[in-house]
Design a protein around this nucleic acid. Structure first.
Length: 462
RNA sequence: UCCUCGGUAGCUCAGUUGGUUAGAGCAGUAGACUGUUAAUCUAUUGGUCGCAGGUUCGAGUCCUGCCCGGGGAGCCA
């Protein structure tokens, strides 16, 4: 008999039909006359209640269906006489598919700390919290593809192994097939990468943007969605060494078009979760962040606040607030300043634009003032920078000059510069940190709790 | 990498100015009871106090080093 997912059983009206359910036992309350087993298969937050008449089953069977065990149950789906659930299964047969010794099974019926669950990340999927988080993560990933597909964007796969070491977005992990104990050397003693697997130095990508631009200048509107790697020694609640990033890149978009797309995009994704993950959100709202749903609604219903870096700096300096670090025009905003703008001053997501060129990347479109570039950062409460993007410099001369000013080796960028030599056009794009979005959408506070297998300095289990 | 707080039973924690056999709740185990909802009640197993040194008559408690974890900062998404 094919089994049904618990999510669909719970929304089936009880007409006493025979059904089979398979899942993992969350709790088992066995008495003299009757056993109640809470079964969960991950299809939804709620458990399915299995009622087993003690007369019909050997006691050993009922006792072995303990927390953690995987079981299959067949019986009648009936209206529940208890108050906690609409329907339940009156069991006719119960099979232990996989036993679990409760004396050593790490998960208990009680709640566990997130720190403890991080240490047993291979089992944390079986908790209410991580079930909810990863269902929401899935929804967001799905909604990202849906959003772009509806708008005619193409999903472009940019390389994970890259030979361009000048992407400028942080330290990179080297990729090599050489024997590190005995690497091949050149006559003057340097490591001879020409003899390595790819015949050159290669790394894991820190961004698909530059390659994405190549696609956009042919397919018009593309996006990437893939893993990204940064070898920074960052130990924070918002950084990972391996994370997923979404990078749309659009021909014929100026900075304003870019900002409009980014705002529509974020609102669409959050609305999708509000529409499709109500039960999970309510759980997280209750357990972790009592303002979660309110915050998500607020984002979908209000326009983001737009202001330039210069205006933002003005507000910070005139606020009279004491900051750890004093800043002036030209310095990068610190976390405390971003938080002040977003969480205290405006109390809404903020898009900051037109940053000083010296604190931004070489490829950003230079403004006429000679001092700023058409960059935009979207700042979210509790998260900080969730999106960073810009209009790209499409003028060949200006771009080359900037590359030389910043002492970047242009030899390796010929392929990139070719887009400016042959049929260049105004174009823009941005990068969204997927886990930061999941963090915001779930109300969790540590980014390691919104990715299944976190990679961070000194952490690469599984 | 820096700052800061922490590491005591499977989990969450208490442990006084250094003092004798280190405690609780939950989980587990045994039993009772029950259309129960993280059920309830009774009994009970369980600890090299992160690791290594040091001070002391005596260290979970004080000192030094190291390891691990939380939070914050920087780098950024």
């Amino acid at each position: 008999m094919p089994h049904s997912k618990i999510k669909s059983l719970l929304s089936t009206s009880p007409v006493s039909q025979e059904v089979t359910s398979k899942g993992w036992v969350r709790s088992n309350r066995t008495g003299k006359n009757v056993s109640f087993i809470a079964l969960n298969d991950g299809s939804c937050l709620a458990n399915l209640q299995i009622v087993a008449d003690a007369q019909k089953f050997p006691k050993e069977l009922l006792m072995s269906a303990q927390t953690g065990a995987c079981i299959s149950v067949t019986g009648k789906l009936v209206a529940s006489t208890g108050s906690g659930q609409p329907v339940e299964i009156q069991a006719d047969s119960i099979e232990i598919l996989g036993a679990s010794d409760p004396a050593v099974y790490p998960l208990q019926k009680k709640g566990h700390s997130l720190e403890f669950l991080r240490e047993i990340a291979h089992l944390r999927f079986r908790t209410n919290t991580f079930g909810a988080v990863f269902r929401i993560r899935h929804s967001l990933a799905y909604a990202i593809h849906e959003f772009f597909h509806k708008r005619g964007f193409y999903y472009l796969h940019t390389p994970i192994i890259t030979g361009s070491d000048c992407e400028g977005a942080g330290a990179m992990f080297r990729v090599t097939a050489m024997d590190l104990k005995n690497p091949l050397k050149t006559p003057n003693g340097d490591i001879d990468f020409a003899k390595d697997f790819f015949g050159k130095e290669t790394y894991l990508t820190v961004s698909g943007q530059l390659e994405g631009e190549l696609g956009a200048l042919a397919l018009s509107e593309i996006y990437t969605f893939g893993p990204t790697f940064r070898a920074e020694n960052s130990n924070t609640t918002r950084h990972l060494s391996e994370f997923w990033m979404i990078e749309p890149e659009m021909a014929f978009y100026d900075l304003k078009d870019n900002m409009r797309l980014a705002e529509d995009f974020l609102k669409y994704l959050i609305q999708f979760v509000l529409d499709n993950n109500k039960e999970d959100l309510e759980f997280l709202n209750k357990m972790y962040d009592s303002t979660l749903i309110e915050k998500l609604r607020f984002v979908t219903q209000n326009n983001f606040r737009h202001l330039t870096y210069t205006e933002g700096m003005d507000i910070i300096q005139k606020s009279g607030k004491k900051f750890e670090l004093q800043i002036q025009w030209g310095s990068d905003l610190q976390s405390e300043h971003e938080r002040f703008l977003v969480e205290e001053h405006f109390k809404t997501p903020v898009i900051l634009t037109d940053y000083p060129k010296d604190i931004k990347a070489f490829y950003m479109k230079q403004n006429e003032d000679g001092k700023t570039v058409r960059a935009m950062d979207i700042l979210f409460p509790g998260i900080g920078e969730i999106i960073g993007g810009s209009q790209r410099e499409e003028n060949y001369e200006k771009l080359v000059n900037r590359i030389r000013e910043m002492k970047i080796d242009e030899k390796n960028l010929g392929w990139y510069l070719d887009t400016r030599r042959f049929g260049t056009c105004v174009h823009s794009g941005f990068g969204l940190g997927f886990e930061r979005l999941v963090l915001f959408a779930t109300g969790m506070s540590n980014i390691r709790d919104v990715i299944p297998f976190p990679r961070a300095p000194k952490e690469a289990a599984f």
